Simulated scan of single mutants.
Amino acid sequence: MTDTSARAMRGDIRLGRVLSIALPVGLAILLVTLWWVSAALAQSAVLPTPATALDRLTANLQGQRFRQSIGDTLYRLAIAYVGVVVIGAALGFAVGLSKFWSDALSPVLYAIYSVPKIVLFPLFLVFLGLTDASQIAFAFFSGVLPMVIMVINATAGVPRLPLKLAASVNMPTWAVVRKIVFPSVLPALASALRLTFGLTFLGLLIGEMFAGVSGLGYELLRNIPLGRLGDITGEVALILVIALVPVTALSILEKRIKNRYSPVEG
Rank of each mutant, 00 (worst) to 15 (best):
Met1Asp: 08
Asp3Phe: 06
Thr4Lys: 12
Ala6Ile: 10
Arg7Met: 09
Ala8Glu: 14
Gly11Pro: 03
Gly11Leu: 12
Gly11Ser: 13
Asp12Gln: 14
Asp12Arg: 15
Ile13Phe: 08
Arg14Lys: 10
Gly16Lys: 07
Arg17Lys: 05
Val18Ala: 15
Val18Asn: 01
Ile21Met: 14
Ala22Thr: 06
Gly26Ala: 08
Ile29Ala: 15
Leu30Arg: 05
Val37Asn: 03
Val37Thr: 08
Ser38Lys: 09
Gln43Asn: 14
Ser44His: 03
Pro50Ser: 02
Arg56Ser: 10
Thr58Tyr: 09
Arg67Pro: 00
Arg76Cys: 02
Ala78Met: 10
Val82Phe: 15
Gly83Met: 09
Val86Pro: 10
Ile87Arg: 06
Ala90Phe: 14
Gly92His: 08
Gly92Tyr: 10
Phe93Gly: 04
Phe93Ala: 05
Val95Lys: 05
Gly96Phe: 11
Leu97Ala: 05
Lys99Trp: 03
Lys99Val: 03
Lys99Arg: 15
Lys99Ile: 02
Asp103Gly: 09
Leu105Asn: 01
Tyr113Arg: 04
Tyr113Val: 00
Lys117Cys: 00
Phe121Pro: 06
Phe121Ser: 03
Leu123Ala: 13
Leu125Met: 14
Phe127Ala: 12
Leu128Arg: 05
Thr131Lys: 12
Asp132Gln: 10
Asp132Ala: 11
Ala133Ser: 12
Ala133Gly: 02
Ile136Phe: 06
Ala137Met: 09
Leu145Phe: 13
Pro146Tyr: 07
Met147Lys: 07
Asn153Arg: 13
Asn153Glu: 12
Ala156Asn: 11
Gly157Arg: 07
Val158Trp: 11
Pro159Asp: 14
Leu163Lys: 10
Lys164Pro: 00
Ala167Asp: 14
Val169Ser: 04
Val169Trp: 04
Thr173Lys: 13
Ala175Phe: 02
Val176Ser: 13
Val177Thr: 11
Arg178Phe: 05
Arg178His: 09
Lys179Ala: 11
Val185Gln: 10
Val185Ile: 11
Ala190Ser: 15
Leu195Pro: 00
Leu195Cys: 03
Leu199Arg: 11
Thr200Ile: 03
Phe201Arg: 00
Leu202Gln: 12
Leu202Trp: 03
Gly207Ile: 06
Gly212Tyr: 08
Leu220Asp: 01
Asn223Thr: 07
Ile224Gln: 13
Leu229Thr: 13
Gly230Ala: 03
Gly230Met: 04
Asp231Cys: 03
Thr233Asp: 00
Val236His: 02
Val236Gly: 01
Leu238Phe: 06
Ile239Pro: 02
Leu244Gly: 00
Thr248Tyr: 07
Thr248Val: 13
Ser251Gln: 13
Arg256Leu: 10
Ile257Leu: 15
Lys258Leu: 03
Arg260Ile: 00
Val264Tyr: 07
Gly266Gln: 07
Gly266Trp: 06
